[in-house]
Design a protein around this nucleic acid. Structure first.
Lengths: 156, 156
DNA sequence: CTCCGTGCAAAAGGTTTGCACTGGT
DNA sequence: ACCAGTGCAAACCTTTTGCACGGAG
C-alpha cells in the first residue's frame, strides 16, 4: 500500500466524517491534514504552520490550532505526549508506541507489531472502560549511547 | 507500610542522593518534595506552589519550577505526560500506568500489578536501549459513562 | 568564605479568546 | 442567506532567563 494511497484513504475518511458531523470542508482543514499525514515526525502546531503557510497564503496560526483540535476530535489525528510542555500531533492513528530517550528527549515511533499485546486490565474497581492503549518506553537512543560525540538532534 | 513512613523513607532517599551529588538541602526542596509525595493527584508546578506557599513565605514560583526539575533529575519525582500542554508531576516513582478519560481528560493512576508485564521489544534496528515503560490506557471514566449528569472534575 | 540556590522582574513561548468578516453548504 | 470557520490582535498562562542577594556547606 503506497503512502499516497494511504493518504487519500485518510482524507476520504476525514471528508466522510465531516459530512456526518456537519463540519465544513475547508481548504485549511484539508491542507493541514495532508501535511500532518505526510509528516513522519511529531510536529507542533507551529511546525505545521510553517509547513503549510506557503500553500495557504494569509493562514493564521490560530486556525492551525483550531484545525488540529478539530482533527483530533474527528479522530484522524492524535495528540502525542511529550514532556516538553508543547503539544505535538501525530497523523498516525493506528495503535503504535513510543520510545523516548531520557538523554536527548528524542521521540521515536514503534510499530505495534513489535510489541506483544497487552491484555487490558479490568480496571474493575474504577469503573473505567478501556478502549485502547499506548506504551511509552523510556531508555537511551542509539546516538546517546555513543561516546558523547556528534549527537545533535533537531529536538524532533 | 503507613503513608507517613513511606514519605520519610522517600525524604531520606532524597537527602542521601543530594549529598552524593553535592546538592544543597534547602527548605524549599524539602517542603516541595513533601507536598508532592503527600498529593495523590498529578499537580502542575502552579498547584504545588499554591499548596506550599503557606509554609514557605516569600516563595517564588520560579523556585518551584526549578526545584521540581531538580527532583526529577535526582529521581524522586516523575513528569507526567498529559495532553493539555501543561507539565504535571508525580511523586510516585514506582512503575505505574495511567488511565486517561477521552471525555473529561481526567488522569487516574493504575498500579503496575494490575497490568500484565510487557516484555520490552528488542528495538533492535533502532539501537534504542529500553530501560522502563509506562502504559497509557485511553477510554471513558466511570462518571463520563453516566447519563451525562453531574460530571464535573477539577481537571485533575 | 565560596558558591549554589533563591527571589524578583522581565522576557519568551505556546495557546486561547473576542470580534468582525468571509466562504462553505 | 445563514452560520460555521477564519484572520487578526490582544490577552492569558506557563515556563525560562538574567541578575543580585543570602544561606548552605
Amino acid at each position: 500500500m503506497s503512502a499516497s494511497f494511504e493518504a487519500s484513504r485518510r482524507m476520504a475518511e476525514f471528508e466522510r466524517e465531516c459530512r456526518r458531523r456537519g463540519l465544513s470542508l475547508t481548504v485549511q482543514r484539508r491542507v493541514i491534514l495532508e501535511e500532518l499525514i505526510a509528516r513522519r515526525d511529531h510536529p507542533t502546531a507551529d511546525q505545521i504552520y510553517e509547513g503549510v503557510k506557503g500553500r495557504l497564503p494569509g493562514l493564521s496560526r490560530t486556525t492551525v490550532y483550531r484545525v488540529l483540535e478539530t482533527l483530533v476530535e474527528v479522530g484522524v489525528a492524535h495528540k502525542v505526549l511529550h514532556h516538553d510542555a508543547v503539544v505535538r500531533f501525530d497523523g498516525v492513528t493506528e495503535r503504535h508506541h513510543h520510545l523516548i530517550c531520557l538523554e536527548c528527549d528524542r521521540l521515536i515511533d514503534l510499530e505495534d507489531s513489535l510489541v506483544p499485546d497487552v491484555h487490558p486490565p479490568d480496571a474493575g474497581p474504577t469503573g473505567f472502560s478501556i478502549r485502547d492503549y499506548s506504551i511509552t518506553f523510556t531508555g537511551i537512543c542509539a546516538s546517546c549511547q555513543q561516546p558523547a560525540e556528534r549527537r545533535r538532534w533537531q529536538s524532533n
